[in-house]
């Protein structure tokens, strides 16, 4: 399970050294177990769900809004009830987890990589390259997330891949700004001067020296941003700009349920909402833990 957690959080080439370091230190805490369970459920969703909520033939409209425990016309019980269209809530949570995790992890990783590259490049080359990249970052951060996402999704068209793209566009600047700050202080350290004096190729300096040494902030940001991405995707869904209608993610399942919040059909939003909360919270807890281990000061202590 630890391995799963790590693979998900640290899926990136060139990180094996760092990852190995953590693998030794990781101990199984409560949040790690919860997160691992979520990931496991997401992977096994088709095997353990009573219903495939994305298959219109398996979803029965006449069973819509059944309370938890109702036995539907399909012959199985809706343990957590059904939503307004007859989708089994439990199955929707299982399947929604997959989409939410894939969307958030893929977009955050991609954003982190782009941000890393941009930040290191800006810091190393300075001058106009730095100016251009950082103005772009400023621009990005001064535009409302929702506007960027809306424009991106509408121009690109709907679909899970487009949402990932939109989330990348929204997130990369945060990494870039953070990494640049760290990389900037690294470039002033003596080993960089030494590398330059030795006339090492620029690419080599960037990849072998500056990048590994600037990676820590991006890493600490990653779990937080994955959590953000899940919440952001949910918010986009809430505003009607999220994943496709018939393939709800965890976030859009919650958003769908909001219309029913005051109807007494609490289960539609409550259970996916709790699942969402636990997922993001466990990611954040695990992220905190990772960060504590990453921090050289606390490691020294």
């Amino acid at each position: 399970m630890k391995a799963i957690v790590l693979r998900i959080l640290l899926q990136r080439p060139g990180l094996d050294r760092t990852a190995g370091l953590f693998r030794l230190r990781l101990r199984a805490g409560g949040s790690q177990i919860v997160l691992a369970a979520f990931v496991l459920v997401a992977i096994l969703a088709p095997l353990i769900s009573p219903q495939n909520p994305y298959d219109p033939l398996q979803v029965l409209g006449w069973d819509a809004s059944s309370p938890p425990g109702t036995v539907g016309s399909g012959g199985y019980a809706y343990i957590l009830g059904t939503d307004g269209l007859g989708r089994d809530i439990l199955s929707t949570i299982f399947y929604g987890l997959r989409i939410s995790l894939v969307v958030s992890i893929v977009s955050s990783l991609a954003a982190a990589m782009i941000g890393l590259a941009a930040g290191v490049t800006a810091a190393y080359f300075g001058r106009w390259i730095d100016a251009v990249i950082m103005r772009l970052v400023d621009l990005q951060l001064s535009l409302p997330t929702i506007l960027v996402a809306l424009i991106a999704i509408v121009t690109l068209g709907p679909g899970v891949d487009r949402i990932i793209l939109a989330l990348i566009i929204v997130q990369w600047a945060v990494y870039a700004r953070m990494v640049r700050g760290v990389a900037l202080s690294e470039t002033r350290k003596s080993y960089m001067d030494a590398a330059q004096l030795l006339r090492m190729p620029t690419l080599r300096i960037l990849l072998r020296h500056l990048l590994p040494n600037s990676i820590a902030p991006a890493l600490t940001l990653l779990p937080i941003e994955i959590g953000h991405a899940i919440a952001l995707e949910a918010t986009l869904s809430f505003l009607g700009l999220g994943v496709p209608l018939d393939k709800p993610s965890l976030g859009s399942a919650v958003a769908n349920g909001f219309q029913y919040l005051m109807t007494g059909q609490y289960w539609i939003s409550l259970f996916p909402g709790l699942a969402l909360l636990c997922l993001v919270a466990s990611i954040n807890f695990v992220g905190d833990d990772l960060r504590r281990r990453l921090d050289p000061r606390s490691a020294a202590r």
Partner: peptide
């Protein structure tokens, strides 16, 4: 405090808002 912070930061704000309405208003 730390747990509270992480939990609050994990809640999407639309969910938090609706829960506040449901709990304190409705």
């Amino acid at each position: 405090v730390l747990r509270f912070c992480v939990l609050v930061a994990s809640v999407p704000s639309f969910w938090l808002s609706m829960m506040l309405i449901l709990g304190l208003a409705v």
